[in-house]
Design a protein around this nucleic acid. Sequence first.
DNA 1: GACCTGCTGCGGTTTG
Length: 765
Amino acid sequence: MQIRRATAGTTNLPQSGSDTTGFDRLHPEIRRWIWEQKWEELRDVQDRAISAVLDTEADVLIAASTAAGKTEAAFLPVLTKVADRKGSGFSVLYVSPLKALINDQFRRLDQLAERLEIDTVRWHGDAPQSAKQRARRDPRGVVLITPESIEAMLIRRPGDAKAMLGSLDFIVIDELHAFLKGPRGLHLASLLRRIDALSAQPARRIGLSATIGDLAVAARWLNPGQAEDVRVVESSADSPELRLQVRAYSDPEEVEDADGLEADERQVALDLIADHMFSVLRGANNLVFAGSRKRVEALADRLRTRSEKVSVPNEFYPHHGSLSKELREELEDRLKKGDLPTTGVATTTLELGIDIGSIKSVAQVGAPRSLSSLRQRLGRSGRRRGVPAVLRIYVRERLLGKGSDPVDHLRLETVRAVAAVRLLVERFVEPPSIDAAIATVALHQTLSVIAQEGGARAGTLYQILCSSGPLSSLTKADYAQLLRGMASAEHRLVEQAPDGTIMLGEQGERLTASRDFYAIFSTDEEWRLVSSGRTLGTIPMSNPVGVGVVIAFAGRRWRIEAVDDRGKVLEVVHHRSGRIPKFDNVMNEPVHDRLSAEMRAVLQDMSVPGFLDDAAKEYLSEGRAAFRQLGLDAGSLVPAGKDTHVFTWHGTDVNAVLGFAFASAGLDCAILDVGVTVLDTQPDVVQAIMRQIADRPPDIDQVADFVENLQSAKFDEMVPEQLLRSLWGRSRHDVAERVASAVRAVVADFNDTTNGKPDAPTRRG
DNA sequence: GACCTGCTGCGGTTTG
């Protein structure tokens, strides 16, 4: 067996010593292990990662698709480096967003590490206690951990934490893209800073990421101080051939619940979609992404029913966050084993890196709203060389009638599907969006540091948490405001000793002592569904429950036999009918500016893509006709009954801020994917107000006064409202600029149109 | 904002 150098792609790394390959430089025991694996060669990313880790002292960012062997790319050189390390304390901290991923990686890593006599320990809530205890007594080697378990380690046993984490050589962060947005990423960034503070020499960081739009953002996350020093190893592998189809279906116009269970007489679009999936997906392994938990249940139920009708074994199983771990693992194992044809119908739960074997095709219901998500899903199919990736997008449009809203005539679902495919081909991916959770994370981490240290001075807290990194957008004045709020009689989270030391207050003690403290996100209370002693999953408390109520869940139908109010348990048995429980949220995933703009380009264009089925072609041409008929090629305002649509062709961020600008002028708005709807207002009034906005763009801090639901993150209710409002405005300065330019573009259209139309509205503000 | 994601230590019980 010979190991050759992989075909070199472009690289931004200095070449190492002339002829030595990455392979030659690995620890002898690792080379032997690679031979035994019968690998023919190291992948390009692996080869380059080896030299980045072994030849430099820099942080390293490895960006490649799911199947490119990123974990090995990081661990082969990292283990080579730490193999002969002596002394106590872990040498490698591997952080993952998922327990399931830790278990996967542990299985892959453990035997290799054992060969090198390197200890490996899983450290998360479901990992065996005994192994953790052993590692606590004698910490060495690699620890695989979640952010929440790091949090617990730091505040429960600060002394042990220093002994365990105070002399790390490497911190490896898996699925780094999952930490680039949202509170959990801010939380982890703060924890890593605090780990650095435990040691004389901060550990080198290695980030493993999916292919993402802006690698500079990931590099900055990895090393906020010197992002330019981060070595970037990006996969140069070509993406596989893509076979693609967009299929369109129509709902009967007045359908009440397009995602409900099958009704007897009338076929809604989802029934027709299920028919098609049933006919093309059986016999192989596939993934179907349905968007919401309700739609997952609706589709899994339809597919199982179809199997029963023609007496064939069911191959379709649901997978989402409310299903029990047991049921989810059954499906994952079935997909991984690959001996029975299986289609997983999922929300986003099957997007991340857990190993599910080879997948023939990917389908999704509803036009994509995010390119990063679409790419991630596509990466699940066609992973073997020479095998094309197969993607089917099923869109639903309404049957139009006399009273239909003009927006429905634009066929925006079909248009968005076409726009998304065009951006996919262009390789566009959304950059991570703004963070709304800085104040919540600062509050949480303040309590955590005080619990860890027993007490701290305000200046020290600010230094530890905010002096650089993602929380540094908080000024000293902001932080003082936060602390004052925490110390207030209302919250009593902290109190100040006479010498100035800040300590936990009564509520702070209570909060940090609870098991619920470790995670930066919260979950609502839910009913647990149990059938014959087996947990099926959970549904929100908001669902009406009672003995005799029949529900559809986990791909089957159930009757509630008993309700345990105290234990929050619903005892259920199989039943033939039922309805799908509510999963609360009704809002949509936000759309990026670029996708909205591309939708307009699709409507203006004349070409008809070959990947559309006949129905989708028809809808596209209807949408284009409506676009011209509504005058959208030259204007932006469309009356709809008592309301007026304003087409900005910008994304959700911009439209939301524009909505608040209208609110500040006293008008109510609904937010669309490509604009806003001003309620109970005629176009001439809207036009006048838009001219005002264009003349004097509203100050974002003034607009912020009209935001109502400012509290969105876990501890926001304990953050002074004034601080939340100020942060909201500050994080949206660039959005405000985009709103101003969108408004100017709309107003320019008025002027063009006005020139040609003598009867145009004359009213001005 | 769709959808996700996480959890200590101790006391009690069961089992070998």
